[in-house]
Design a protein around this nucleic acid. Structure first.
Length: 420
RNA sequence: GGAGGCUUCGCCUAGUCUGGUUUAUGGCGCCCGCCUGCUAAGCGGGUUUGGGGCUUAUACCCCAUCCCGGGUUCAAAUCCCGGAGCCUCCGCCA
């Protein structure tokens, strides 16, 4: 949700942000009008309420003979108050709608444009030179690590089983992520994966991407697509004490995505699936610290990628591909030998105060005033990493080298051997 | 699934039966000041959260806020209806 003060003081900045995203700048003017109308309605209703209070206490103190006369006046006022309150509510609803329609104001430096207008910040690591490339599913089947056929039999397309070393690899990967996060001062969390509409909406996932989200109609609950959602909801309606620095959480959860609109895309293997596991970093901090925290999250992601020895690049995502909540987003994309290109394995967003205004999460600034906090999130490891790990560390015989950073979490194992 | 109890400004709590002198009581904690070799104690004051107005800002004024949402009434913490959460008991169950 957009800050009305920023909007009033600097509407051009919001207009520019909307244009860079390829979204409507006219929404800014609708919002300004809605803001004006709401304030007028509040002033009118407040004045009537004040009058009514006086009138009411006059009734209370009146002598029996003046009482009937005063009662009539009071009754008439009560009716007018009722009308004014309906108008006030209406303008409030319109304001909120106009406010929700505008995406977060992008951070300075964000590349303008759409999905393909990202800027590559750096490439790290060495791509493997392979004579014969097996893709992750072929490798996964050789190792007895991935079973998509039975996944489809039991649950449908885009479901899978991780079996044997596949299951162990995921546990090792996520455990390594948790350990890294804990030693960096993050609080590990295992979160709910079903959340209420207000939480799903508050994090910004019920906007243009709402058809990506699973909904349980009978219970009016949503399955989360990332633990960002329950971690953002964790402090909903609270005032945080950030005097000792940001609150940093690392959430481990299953994630569920409908993948609507991606029919035919990435249908092979487990690159794009309906359910996966993820360790996600989530930070609450003062707005002035957000940009710096964002860099820390990105650095943590790169540490993890180094641990599993993946070649990757970092991209600065363009404005039009940020989603409504993010003001800036950096993705790390790992090299996939089977595709000969980079694919997203992490994503870190600075959501500034966009989510906390919706979720009513504040902190005390240095003057003791309560202000919306900033939130950020970033991926530390997901099931998808298995794809890149298998493909980049494959050997000619179909075995897969276990990266050093994961060996301690796999009982010291150095290689996964094909089963016959 | 059934029955009952509870929810008040950080924490605890009075007030709810019997609607209006309640701008919600008191204690603890916290903040400011006074007193005092120091500390403690004592004394005085302050301390919900939003919104609006007026301001350079502070101050000040107004409105809302007693779990949430409706309703009755000139007037609701208080009465009525619906919902949520917590606790206790019963039933069922991996």
């Amino acid at each position: 949700m957009i800050d009305l003060r920023i909007l009033r003081d600097n509407p051009d900045r919001v207009r520019a942000s909307q244009r860079a995203r390829g979204e409507s700048a006219e929404l800014v003017d609708s919002l300004l009008v809605a803001d004006e109308r709401r304030r007028a309605a509040i002033a009118a209703a407040d004045a009537l309420r004040a009058e009514q209070k006086k009138s009411s206490s006059a009734v209370k103190q009146a002598s029996p003979e003046e009482r009937p006369q005063l009662l009539v006046q009071a009754q008439e006022l009560a009716a007018r108050v009722k009308v004014a309150e309906v108008a006030q509510t209406q303008t409030q609803v319109e304001l909120t709608q106009a406010q929700l329609a505008i995406s977060n104001v992008i951070e300075d430096g964000t590349p303008p444009g759409g999905e393909d207008d990202y800027v590559v910040l750096r490439e790290v690591g060495v791509k493997p030179e392979l004579e014969r490339v097996r893709d992750h599913l072929e490798l996964g089947e050789l190792l007895g690590a991935i079973d998509t056929e039975r996944g489809a039999k039991v649950s449908g397309a885009r479901f899978y089983y991780l079996t044997g070393v596949g299951a162990l690899l995921q546990l090792a990967l996520l455990q390594a992520a948790i350990e890294q996060a804990v030693s960096a001062g993050f609080t590990p969390m295992i979160t709910p994966t079903l959340v209420k509409p207000e939480v799903m909406g508050g994090t910004g996932f019920l906007g243009t991407h709402s058809d990506e989200v699973y909904r349980l109609e009978a219970d009016d609950l949503y399955l989360v697509g990332t633990s960002e959602v329950p971690l953002a909801g964790y402090h909903m309606n609270e005032i945080l004490d950030l005097a000792n620095g940001p609150k940093r959480y690392a959430g481990w959860s299953s994630c569920y995505r409908r993948e609507a609109g991606s029919y035919g895309k990435d249908t092979r293997g487990i690159l794009r699936v309906h359910q996966f596991d993820k360790v996600e970093m989530f930070v609450y901090c003062a707005p002035e610290d957000a940009t710096q925290e964002h860099q820390r999250l990105l650095a943590a992601e790169e540490d993890m990628l180094a641990k599993v020895e993946l070649p990757y690049r970092v991209i600065d995502v363009a404005a039009g591909d940020l989603g409504s909540s993010a003001a800036r987003k950096f993705d790390c994309e790992a090299w996939l030998p089977s595709q000969g290109r980079y694919r997203e394995v992490t994503s870190t967003s600075n959501c500034t105060q966009y989510q906390t205004r919706r979720l009513n999460i504040r902190y005390r600034d240095t003057d003791g005033r309560s202000m919306p906090a900033a939130t950020l999130n970033g991926t530390l490891a997901t099931t998808r990493w298995i794809v890149a790990i298998l493909e980049n560390h494959q050997q000619p015989d179909g075995s897969v080298r276990v990266p050093k950073g994961l060996q301690p979490y796999l009982g010291g194992r150095e290689v996964f051997e094909p089963q016959r």
